[in-house]
Design a protein around this nucleic acid. Structure first.
Lengths: 186, 186, 186, 186
DNA sequence: ATTTAACCGAGACGGTACGTCCCGTCTTTAC
DNA sequence: GTAAAGACGGGACGTACCGTCTCGGTTAAAT
């Protein structure tokens, strides 16, 4: 039963203009720059409008995380090859701003707003998911597979986020091989 | 040639009062709360004085990082036992505020001020150092030892910082054993 | 020749609902509260509709001044008695919100919008009119009658509006008598 | 016992600049224009500073009422002459902005903020005071003197404030004479 | 004991951003 | 055509910090 009146929510234009500018800002200047004021000066959309639709930083990040470029999907062949290509993919994504910057921003935002911590968790798990998927049909138990995925991916995240250096790609490839030695292949 | 007049620098009292309050603030409310204003209301030391001695947030963090409780040193016995105890120690430290919170705050601060990124790197490397040390006399080459240390410690950091959950202690212990299987012991 | 379509102007419901709410608002919260926004939240009538029918605050006050309770008319007997009863009536009206508040609000509104000054003038003259009427057949010249009316009524208005105290009824009655001593009766 | 630190309160410069601009604004554009924003654009003094020292409109009016040009004092000779000259003086003051505008502003401000009503009362009583003073040694009782003062002055105030027309000087002079006929002179 | 340089506190001041509120206009939809 | 719902830009509001500054009083060394 449609009520009268203009449909709620931002007009499509407004939404895309603001969100793309937000992503841009986030990646070029970090999470701290992601303020209504900055979005206003960057887009020309009035501060009022921005507050109307995204009253909290969290609301913005929520919308943003869906706009952010989805990871390129890899259908998969055999386990080893899949893992290696996932390693390369993750390294690339961490190097290029879109993922590394986003993650950095999420961590910073989560340190202020506890609600955002949940977003951060989901985002990180999405990054780890491909490794779990690739390992799906290998190890006997769930725990072992999680161990393996973490061993491979965690060092890359630490490189990029905590040590501020490029993800150490070769080491990750070596780790893949070592992991597979211990794991019965299908 | 000592000039006359009162020696420069904050009086010892002022310094300790401010720095302990700063640490407290950092850990309970995050890096964003670490402002002269907040320090003033927390300590009663006047804003003017704080600005005088720590003109930038970075300066404060610099002094702070030296005050922060140094890690308890473990003089080593054999490799396996050392690694296991380092794992336990790191897990404990990440669970307790002083380290986990400090790290979180550093990451957030670094996302605003690039200078602080260096502090963050040093702090993380200090966390990883014990693992390097424990492995010092094992693997043939430097790279292999770094790989090993990262495999063990990185997943713990990712748990604590990015997934917001307690560091997965058992997995780390398993990883220690797996790593040692591959590494020729001395 | 009635044109097709719905007749112009607000539906009777809308009009009365809005105007009564407007009067209520004006008297309880003053002229500054008389905004479309407030009327909307008070009545449920949509902001759009209110803007359509009363584009300016002035338009609202115009309609409102006609809705406002008209003074109770006193068909006269002799001059003295009429004047005394008019004094009592004016004192009562100034004490009760509907007139005292309305006048207060008009003065405030006029200080913002010059157009409203005209409304204010008309309203005040309506308050003074009964005194002129009662004196109609007394004094020789127009000027003397106006003097007399003002001497009686003005102090009451000053009491209520400028000194924020109840109109000084007794004094006004005394003034009536003094005035009549000087004025030849018909 | 002087506490350390800079003396509290606005610097003399700031104070005079703001208050003179405030008076100017009040008289040329009315009470509604007397906002921190307007004062800022008019004086260049920052909005923050203005809020610091005059947090409410009431605070501003308080300071302003003391800056506002004090009435020219008339030492007095005989009663009749004093009253006539006071009438002329009041008419002049009501005609020239400084008093008429100020009063208008006070009435408008008081209709929003009850605290300001007190200021308004004091201001009006200051306007009436000279008439009381002139009559001081005439009538037998206090009440009669108050009656007389109000009969003379109130119509002038009503003219200027409520009817928006120049104060009716001649009528007031006539009233003075009528009043004095009834009052035993010293 | 003076000098002298620095500390320290209180607060003014300009500036920027915040988040809120209301305004007046408009667009979209339903009746 | 009325009415409702709501987007949108604009402006002011009052608040909170920021970083700098100007005052005044205090303290601790070196002479």
């Amino acid at each position: 039963m449609p009520r009268p009146g203009r449909p709620a929510g931002p007009a499509p234009d407004t939404s895309t203009v603001v969100l793309t500018a937000a992503l841009e800002l986030l990646l070029t200047e970090g999470a701290a720059a992601l303020t209504p004021q900055r979005l206003h000066t960057a887009t020309g959309v009035s501060r009022t409008t921005i507050y109307r639709h995204w009253p909290t930083p969290h609301a913005l990040l929520c919308d943003l995380i869906e706009v952010a470029p989805a990871r390129t999907h890899v259908p998969s062949g055999d386990v080893r090859r899949d893992l290696h290509s996932e390693v390369d993919l993750l390294c690339d994504r961490l190097r290029d701003k879109p993922v590394g910057g986003f993650l950095q921003a999420l961590v910073a935002a989560a340190s202020v707003d506890p609600d955002t911590a949940e977003l951060r968790r989901r985002y990180v798990e999405d990054l780890l998911a491909p490794f779990h998927a690739a390992l799906a049909h290998t190890a006997p138990d769930e725990a072992a597979r999680t161990d393996a995925a973490m061993s491979i991916a965690a060092p890359l995240l630490v490189d990029a986020l905590l040590l501020g250096r490029p993800a150490h790609r070769d080491r990750a490839h070596r780790t893949v091989d070592e992991v597979l030695e211990r794991v019965p292949r299908t």
